[in-house]
Design a binder for these strands. Sequence first.
DNA 1: TTGTATGCGTTATCAC
DNA 2: GTGATAACGCATACAA
Lengths: 331, 331
Amino acid sequence: MIFDGAERPVTSHDVARAAGVSQSAVSRAFTAGASISPVMRDKVRSAAALLGYQPNLLPRMMLHGRSGFIALVVGGAYNPFHAATLEAFSRALQEAGKKILLLQVDDDRALDAVVNDLAGYRVDGVVSALSILGEEAAAAISAHRIPVVLLNSGLSSEWIRVVETDNHGAGRAAARLMARGGGTRFAYVGAPSVASAARKAGFQHELAKIGMAPPLCLEGNLDHDGGYAAARAMLAAPMRPDAIFCVNDLTAIGVADAWRIEGGLDVPRDAQLVGFDNIAASAWPAYRLTTFDQNVDRMAAEAVRLLVSPAPATERSCVGFTLIERHSTAR
Amino acid sequence: MIFDGAERPVTSHDVARAAGVSQSAVSRAFTAGASISPVMRDKVRSAAALLGYQPNLLPRMMLHGRSGFIALVVGGAYNPFHAATLEAFSRALQEAGKKILLLQVDDDRALDAVVNDLAGYRVDGVVSALSILGEEAAAAISAHRIPVVLLNSGLSSEWIRVVETDNHGAGRAAARLMARGGGTRFAYVGAPSVASAARKAGFQHELAKIGMAPPLCLEGNLDHDGGYAAARAMLAAPMRPDAIFCVNDLTAIGVADAWRIEGGLDVPRDAQLVGFDNIAASAWPAYRLTTFDQNVDRMAAEAVRLLVSPAPATERSCVGFTLIERHSTAR
DNA sequence: TTGTATGCGTTATCAC
DNA sequence: GTGATAACGCATACAA
């Protein structure tokens, strides 16, 4: 406090000088399980407290060779489910003692920069739900031997692990549920993604198995207006569906809104409706939507487990869903 | 590739040896604007590419004393607006060349750990919308001389900068708008927060100024069910309000739902309704909610500007709102 | 248990 | 323009 002009951060040497001990003693006083006497540790720590010393963690990373950082790569499409996912994953990683480097990717240019950062910061691993993270990016990351965990991705290569929901099983369950509820004219409202394809396949598979006509399939985006537009198309169709499975809750809510506002129809009276993700809005009194909870906490735990595996490995982990039955399928 | 068992990351020394040059040459080949001949740079870079070398950025941080990290501190309450905020801020910080350390705080215990990390990782600054980041935490961060930017916070101390929306002005605008629309029995649905208090004060101030009776004030949480419960109370009240301003869109949507489902009433016929935040759902056909956009991109830009200021300073920056008029106030 | 000395991978300051 | 060398702040092998 005398020499430095209140500019340079306090170092272990400063503390050592103040306490009249060696720099290594200071290091040991802040290292769990180090061989140091209680009296020495107290002396050092009180001197440290006085100076406002906080160990710099950057050199530690250099020495260990591991940064302790996990990159969380997120991208534009904001959906309430993604927010919940982000929260679950950051919580799980933090509890595992990892620090989270948040990287936002908006286009391919940003992606290149991100891949460089991943290597430059010596991250211990990467977690992403981003579909933009395709073959070439995966290859680039593999080249640096960084474990990657992807969510609901079809990708598969060295150093890539995938955590996925049982999408096919959920599609089958949706078909069974609505058939039991008396549905006869089925429809699927999807979007171009691996997860959507699997949900649709399961839906179609089960319908065929129980002797139902194949569903009417519509494609949209993953957003509310995608569902709304699809519903308008269905309202105009010759055979109006009475059992609709949507790729996610946002589109399902769009369908429900169009059903009521554009068609003057009611869910579930005029059509049963099933969504996916169990977002907060699905429980609102206006919707009471039957949906599938992806158990993001378990997915996050799985991701952490797969991430600590140091060897190159292609592993897939499938997390079961939880069916949340609400009013939209009540008959 | 011969000696190491494919374990140790490639260093600049490895590249130097492979290219037959000095380690400094390698450093220069990867430093923008360094004094190096094109032929040398190409030689080094091709050798680097061959070995898969990526400069380690950690030592650079040690030398500079600045990490280039900005801590983004987020907390439990997930609201679509927070997701949009997070996106805007991470984008702005990334464009400013900062790396984002995402820290999740759930309770006071986690907060202590976070404050330690802030110092340990030598972050260049902290951004947070968290109200949990109170006096004592702020003091702890100030002690490490780390600039902090808070959103819509009333806090004020050394090293703390605040970016806020013109909450008071928005409250006044909401009052004027609904009075012009013919409202006579006003209500405010709030929550315990500094921002809510300012919005309410502006609302009350303007109503008094134009000679209206003071609004009925209800307190809830910031979520859908808070608005729903408040609306049920209003429906049971002797003088049912006909002009309602809500602390945010989620509560406003809750009010709209209760109005329709519990009361069989219509917005805007039976009551005008104004929200805050301009979340995606506010534009859905079922709500078409008049609301205030906080211009998060501008807030994020302001935050970045305040963050780069190295000196201790107490600065406040007020970002104007944009009124989004929709059907819920159409008369 | 404690102090001394060395190394982590890079950038920056010097000579050449 | 290029190479040797000294730092950055800490952890650790080793000597005492």
